[in-house]
Nucleic acid binder design. Structure first.
Lengths: 199, 199
DNA sequence: ATGTTACTATAACGATCGGTATGTTATTTG
DNA sequence: CAAATAACATACCGATCGTTATAGTAACAT
């Protein structure tokens, strides 16, 4: 009995999920959430609990709606197929929506309020500068014959940065050094070498 | 002329850098900064400008103090040496300090106030669960002979997660899909295969 | 010694944060 | 038609945020 809800909880949760995806947990304010959902604050509390609980529900929604490629991948025939399937769909998902790029899980910690945008740009620029230095070094390596003609210095530099970022995230999550060293070794296994090197 | 500073700006900047490293930009409050430096708020403003400028100086300090292995690496003979040197030192740096694990750049965006710790744990757990599923799948692959005996399912799963996290960070930074797809392809190049597969 | 300068320390500023008390309105139950 | 129930909207709560005004103090120049 009592009055009926005037909004659809599922639709609101979708909007909430998008906001958290774009701005992260800390960066999403209730002003953002009420604006995105069109639902007043107390109604959000009554429907989802506090902010932490709401984030949990958004996380579950993200898994349901966007991470269905994971079980798909796990059912494939070979481990390489599994890895390839996950990577392909992750790249696609992370670049599909211009308004919320990246992964919900990572952005949950990584993103922030719009006022912090200059800071993010500062860090992105610093990162890009490091990548540029490495790329230029690899271009030289290619010119010197250290890297084969088939190698792409830009991709190699980007790949190295990717692994570095991933390692940083996992270090923050508490991974042991030996584990991360094994990851680094794995990353180096694919490193291209010049065909003969005798010239 | 006028009164002298009663604190050492360089020492204070070191403390500031550690706070930003541990808590990120948004997560570091002036209360944290005054406590870590032992310097009152207006003195920090007079010495470093506002919070954004202070973060910029801390970033520069991080480069000077902790990223000296980058120019070292760039001077090495081969591209593989460059990559190996960077990876080795990055792993070491990211796991050296228990009070601020990970990379300053990534943590600058990724970390947050202590009150958000339950959220980070929620995301870390979700991430760990995904990794577990993949690892178990790879263990099966090894049992089935899809992966060679020399392969380590745990390392492979962790490596895959590392690349996924790195891709997520770079997608957030605005990388194009084609670029990230090339990175994913590079990651797959090192995938181990069973020796003969004919059994 | 005196005035000027630049620091220190306290305390306050407005804004925004997550969270709620409160009164109103709509719906169901008796 | 009441009485009860639950969602609605407004407005507010205390706390914390980054920032700064203000008053006191130490070191210089004259």
């Amino acid at each position: 009995m009592g009055r009926h809800r005037e909004f659809d909880v599922d639709t609101a949760l979708d909007a909430v999920t998008c906001v958290f995806w774009r701005k992260g947990y800390e960066g999403a304010s209730y002003s953002d959430l009420t604006e995105a959902t069109g639902v007043e604050r107390p109604a959000l509390y009554s429907a989802f609990g506090n902010k932490e609980a709401m984030f949990g529900k958004a996380l579950a929604r993200y898994y349901d709606r966007y991470l269905d490629y994971i079980p798909e991948a796990l059912a494939l025939a070979t481990s390489r197929d599994v890895a390839a399937h996950i990577l392909k769909h992750a790249v696609d998902l992370n670049t599909r929506f211009t308004e919320h790029r990246g992964c919900f899980l990572i952005n949950g910690m990584l993103a922030g309020p719009d006022t912090a945008e200059p800071i993010r740009q500062m860090l992105i620029d610093a990162r890009a500068d490091g990548e540029r230095q490495i790329r230029e070094r690899f271009e030289r390596a290619k010119a010197e014959g250290d890297l084969p003609e088939s190698a792409d210095p830009a991709t190699l530099a980007m790949f190295l940065m990717t692994v570095l970022h991933g390692i940083a995230v996992q270090a923050k999550a508490g991974f042991a050094r030996e584990a991360l060293a094994a990851v680094a070794a794995q990353a180096l296994l694919s490193w291209p070498t010049a065909p003969t090197r005798t010239s």
